[in-house]
């Protein structure tokens, strides 16, 4: 429909700007209110800050536990993501290109558990981890994140690795490369953009996760950021500038990822659907 004349293009542009504004405005409001004091905010919630102060961020980071929670989240999510990528690259490559006994059965079971919701898993996982003494321990949550990410990750990577030409694999094998060298010098460079897409998707998913993080790390000292924000939003709702700062802090990492790695996030667009 590119034959539209320019007379119609302007209204379309304006309509799109309007739709985009409905998304941008609430976020703009967060930024604006997070830079104000509470009394300045209550004076006129719709207004702009009368003076800019980063006090809310300092308070929420130091006194309301958002700082440690931010670091906890970064720690847990990074480790879980790296393990997921390692295991799914290895399994994805094998399922795509090696003669794995029972490959159909394995792929089938991965695809079928992909749809199992957290509500079904959380109770038995809680009981299992508490028996292992891992409730309240970062490693318990990391294992759960890895396990729940793997079915999709393996499926996604095995599909994209299948597109790697067999001639390349044959060539590197004649060169005497084994499993590890094949992954390092062929799969990683050729399938790198799929792996990056997957890494970004998984990172976002885990960073934003609430149920497991809330239940499996019950101590305040080990809270991750997303559940910590849920609590801050609940307890201090009447201090909106402070909550705004917390929201921005939590949203900062996903937004940064979207801006810096928009190519990979967008590539994951269609793939993310199957989550």
């Amino acid at each position: 429909m590119t034959s539209l004349n320019s007379r119609v293009r302007w209204p379309i542009f304006l309509l799109l700007v309007l739709m985009a504004a409905t998304i941008i405005y609430p976020l703009f409001f967060l930024v604006s209110s997070s830079l104000r004091t509470n009394s300045d905010y209550l004076n006129n919630p719709l207004g702009l800050p009368s003076s800019i102060s980063f006090e809310n961020f300092v308070v929420i980071w130091n006194t309301y536990g958002a700082g440690p929670a931010f670091l906890n989240s970064l720690y847990v999510v990074t480790i879980a993501m790296i393990i997921t990528i390692l295991l799914s690259t290895s399994a994805g490559y094998a399922l795509a290109k090696l003669p794995v006994p029972g490959a159909k059965l394995i792929t089938g079971s991965f695809v079928s558990v992909m749809l199992i919701p957290g509500q079904v898993l959380i109770l038995p996982i809680y009981l299992m981890l508490s028996r292992l003494g891992l409730v309240g321990d970062f490693s318990g949550l990391i294992v759960v994140y890895v396990a729940t990410s793997l079915p999709f990750a393996v499926f996604f990577l095995s599909v994209s690795f299948r597109a790697i030409p067999d001639e390349l694999l044959e060539a590197i094998r004649l060169d005497g490369a084994g499993f590890f060298r094949t992954i390092r010098s062929l799969i990683l460079p050729v399938g790198g953009s799929s792996i990056a897409t997957l890494a970004v998707l998984q990172f976002l998913g885990m960073w934003n996760e609430l149920l497991y993080a809330f239940i499996l790390l019950p101590d305040d000292s080990k809270r991750l950021l997303t559940p910590a924000l849920a609590q801050i939003g609940d307890r201090y709702l009447n201090q909106q500038p402070l909550v705004s700062a917390g929201l921005l802090l939590t949203a900062s990492v996903p937004i940064l990822l979207l801006v810096l790695a928009s190519r990979y996030v967008m590539q994951g667009l269609a793939a993310g659907v199957s989550r």
């Binding site: 609430l210 939590t250 667009l269």
Partner: peptide, 10 residues
């Protein structure tokens, strides 16, 4: 795409 990368909590 922006809202899609944000947590339901946010």
């Amino acid at each position: 795409f922006l809202p899609n990368v944000l947590s339901a909590v946010v």
